[in-house]
Design a protein around this nucleic acid. Sequence first.
DNA 1: GGGCGTTTCCAAAGCGCTTTGGATAAATGA
DNA 2: TCATTTATCCAAAGCGCTTTGGAAACGCCC
Lengths: 343, 343
Amino acid sequence: MNLKEFSQKIGISQTTISRALNGYPEVSDATRRKVEEAAIRHNYSPNVRAKSLATGRSMLIGHVIPAANTHEMVNPIFGDFLAGASHTYTQRGYDMLISRATDAGEAKTYRDLIAKAAVDGIVVQGPSVNDPRIAVLTDLGIPFVVHGRASQVDVPYSWVDVNNRQSFKRATDFLLDLGHRRIALLNGLETMDFAQRRRQGYEESLGARGIAADTGLMRSAEMTETYGYFETRALLAQDAPPTAFLVASLITANGVARAIAEAGLVIGKDVSVVTHDDDLSYLPNGSDIPVFTATRSSVREAGRIVADMLIDAIGQPHKAPQTVLLEAELVVGQSTGSAPHKG
Amino acid sequence: MNLKEFSQKIGISQTTISRALNGYPEVSDATRRKVEEAAIRHNYSPNVRAKSLATGRSMLIGHVIPAANTHEMVNPIFGDFLAGASHTYTQRGYDMLISRATDAGEAKTYRDLIAKAAVDGIVVQGPSVNDPRIAVLTDLGIPFVVHGRASQVDVPYSWVDVNNRQSFKRATDFLLDLGHRRIALLNGLETMDFAQRRRQGYEESLGARGIAADTGLMRSAEMTETYGYFETRALLAQDAPPTAFLVASLITANGVARAIAEAGLVIGKDVSVVTHDDDLSYLPNGSDIPVFTATRSSVREAGRIVADMLIDAIGQPHKAPQTVLLEAELVVGQSTGSAPHKG
DNA sequence: GGGCGTTTCCAAAGCGCTTTGGATAAATGA
DNA sequence: TCATTTATCCAAAGCGCTTTGGAAACGCCC
């Protein structure tokens, strides 16, 4: 049913219906109620295509899935981040449009999305160190918010990030306080900005106690379970194995735990593990007592904040970029204990 | 830039440009090339809102995130399924619109999506046993494809599913052949259709060997790591503990493994584990040799197939519903071995 | 009854595209 | 050379809504 038909059916003019449904003040409460009720009864909703053509706004937020090498890993935080963001979108009348980057590159995908007038704003996920997308989007002049930050980008832009440096500094401090001196770092891919910052926090903490960071104890890769397993196995087989592991994700931490168990060691006693925990809904870190001591920050909550900031920015195009720095909490679980005394 | 401006800039009529860009035969190859090249050079893409208003098609496929209790779990397969589907969408000129079900319910969300003419087709994920969404969508007359099936729904509809019954039957057979007789089943939530089918396969296999399914060995819940851990701990503490576990997801299997290790038992020797593996990109089941013996089926591939079927259905609205039943493969890993002899 | 503010209606333009019918121009064949 | 095909152009309608200007209806007050 379109507006014309609906108008005839309920005997109210198209103008008044449109005004009633869009909250204009010059329509009486009685008529507004009548229209709203009739719309539900007759299942009338304005055609969004026509509406967005007329208003110039699509009420759609674009998310772009990174370029598509067949076997590229899907970021495990993707689902929870989206769930958080979509919570906000629904409340504020938006939907989410997901586009996959074409082979021509992500920048081209953004350009297209905007040239086609498909979305009102864009969310950028997983920024790398000197992420080119930020310059492209700034240039295109569309509202956007980055989940994470990009070092070395000097134009101002809106972002929401966890204080990764600080949280890994605290985690390292925590392990040092427990007497650990050989602490391995199983980091994410260091092309990612967050991984850089985490390493900085780790090195900073060690440096403050006069301990030189040992590159032999540092690893960097995509954060799979097997990565945690194999690197831990290799590290534990060294002459002077680490007594503690600082890990970038709960999934990887599972692999670390597997390798530790397999070596006949007890986690939290022989070897300590601290991991970052994105608080994914399908991957809770234990129930009442956490399995792993962790730096925890909800990625779902981050999604919610990013979405709110973006919609605000769409409403006020000339406002200066906003930034939000979230602090991760350090939760103590069963995976950490005092460093073992040397036999 | 809009069509009018673009037309003036390159000195070709709007009609011809439109025809060239949409592949109509009455435009010469030379002009078509000229238009396409100029479009790239001047960064012109037709406004999708206007285009879809004119054509009546949005080139958008709707996915709906289930109703939003604040802490509801995000399905971990969500990301990979979307990645698979979006691969197809991109190839065939579609994008994905994700909407979250409102508190008024998912049916209402579908109705809205269609009344608003926002999408050309819909993907239904995670069907429950007698899923009401299928009747709603059939009624609304929009093309849709279900990932999974819904028992007890008798109208024909298009679906793509793994043969869950068969794969859990095979897995149980496999454990029985190894001499196991007390096999625990850590199933997913049995409101979900797939969980029902898996239990049927399990019971069928036991039945064929004259073994009665023991409800004391069967569990059903959301497939988290902690669920696997706590249930396994409880089961192993029983008087006659199971010697094998059949598990619904790799994440849960991690919890199972943790409880087994904690009990001082060796997986694959003292206790065997078989799990279903959705082949998620961020959760590989080991590298060359699988960690867990598993029934494996790629959810990403399923996403690709679902998307292709849906787009086909949009192009041929009166074609009969199609169905695809995928067989899971049984891969043997390090988590299974002969049943231990009784001390 | 006149005047006034409020509410509703009517008609039409505009959003940017597709699609159609008919005109025009250019290339081709007899 | 004229008729015929082929390629392009022009003008306009239509997709379904919003938005505007101006007119009409309504209730209310003095």
